[in-house]
């Protein structure tokens, strides 16, 4: 067993063999989920708390379902509505929850680094469900599993990530994961939505879709967040769709068997033509959702194993 981490805070700290181990286990869970096999014993007696400091329906539902499928007692806390509004600090919230001895804490927070901060203060295993524009590791893992199942491998592929790279934690986690697994990553988007220092990321950067999509195996679209419109990053939705929205004409630059991905929720007609999203020959968007549950089951399973090991042997070597 190579997955030794205590928390899943980001892809940055994972080694390639750890990534492979999560994906292998998730692969099995995906098959078992389809076959209707139950795994209620894996997290039986364990408590999972989902703390979402930022709105989420899909990710939270996915984590909840994953936990329940493994037999955990799952609790959802909508942190926006709770004590944060009353002025409690993140650390106090963490300490309060920690006193309830949760085994698994799934946390999403609007500030980069907030989940790392919280993880320093709790005894259970923390899963980062997205922190600011920093990382969203389970999204990158589910994307990787989707690619691996569709393409039969997760190396030496050419992957284009398109859109608002700058504000996207999904992009950061994917860039790191795909890089670690030795793929070529191309980033496409308007220069106003590219992060600073991007030339040092080991990616190729393009500002037109036609060039950037040339012969890629995978097209990963990112959501364009509506609030970016006010920040003056792009002139208008319609110009954005014209230049960067994925339609069949732009997609024709990619390989004939290129797959199309999107982390959801989609803005049809802004970053992606609805007909592509629905094209079962190209779009794997529904598969991504399915793999999401399997990947989260695998991640929680592995973290729970390490947690049990750690409790048996508190002097253990786990960092």
């Amino acid at each position: 067993m190579s997955f030794r981490a205590r928390h899943l805070l980001g892809i940055e700290h994972l080694a390639p063999d750890e990534i492979t181990e999560v994906l292998d286990l998730a692969d099995q869970y995906a098959d078992h989920n389809r076959a209707g096999r139950s795994h209620k014993d894996v997290l039986a007696g364990m408590t999972q708390i989902n703390m979402f400091f930022e709105n989420s329906t899909r990710t939270q539902a996915s984590f909840e379902l994953a936990g329940k499928k493994l037999g955990a007692d799952v609790m959802n806390m909508a942190m926006q509505a709770s004590s944060i509004k009353k002025g409690e600090t993140l650390i106090d919230t963490a300490l309060t929850l920690n006193a309830m001895h949760p085994d698994l804490l799934v946390v999403r927070h609007p500030n980069s680094g907030a989940v790392d901060l919280l993880a320093q203060k709790v005894n259970g295993a923390v899963l980062n469900a997205g922190d600011g524009r920093h990382e969203h590791p389970t999204q990158a893992l589910l994307d990787a599993l989707t690619i691996r199942r569709a393409k039969g491998r997760l190396h030496r592929l050419s992957v284009a990530i398109c859109g608002d790279i700058s504000h996207s934690r999904v992009a950061r986690s994917n860039i790191m994961l795909l890089g670690k697994m030795e793929n070529r990553v191309r980033l496409i988007g308007p220069p106003t939505l590219m992060p600073s220092g991007i030339s040092e990321f080991g990616c190729e950067v393009f500002d037109t879709m036609e060039e950037g999509l040339k012969d890629v195996d995978v097209v990963m679209m990112l959501r364009l967040q509506k609030e970016r419109m006010d920040g003056g990053f792009i002139p208008s939705e319609r110009e954005y769709f014209h230049r960067y929205g994925l339609d069949f004409a732009k997609l024709s630059n990619a390989k004939d068997d290129a797959i199309v991905m999107h982390p959801g929720p989609m803005n049809r007609g802004v970053e992606i033509d609805g007909n592509i999203a629905d094209d079962i020959n190209r779009s794997v968007i529904q598969t991504q959702v399915e793999m999401g549950v399997a990947v989260r089951m695998a991640a929680m399973d592995l973290l729970a194993r390490n947690l049990k090991l750690n409790r048996k042997n508190p002097q253990g070597v786990m960092a």
Partner: peptide, 8 residues
Amino acid sequence: KFASLRGL
């Protein structure tokens, strides 16, 4: 690069 990696 550092700012972008940390998402700050």
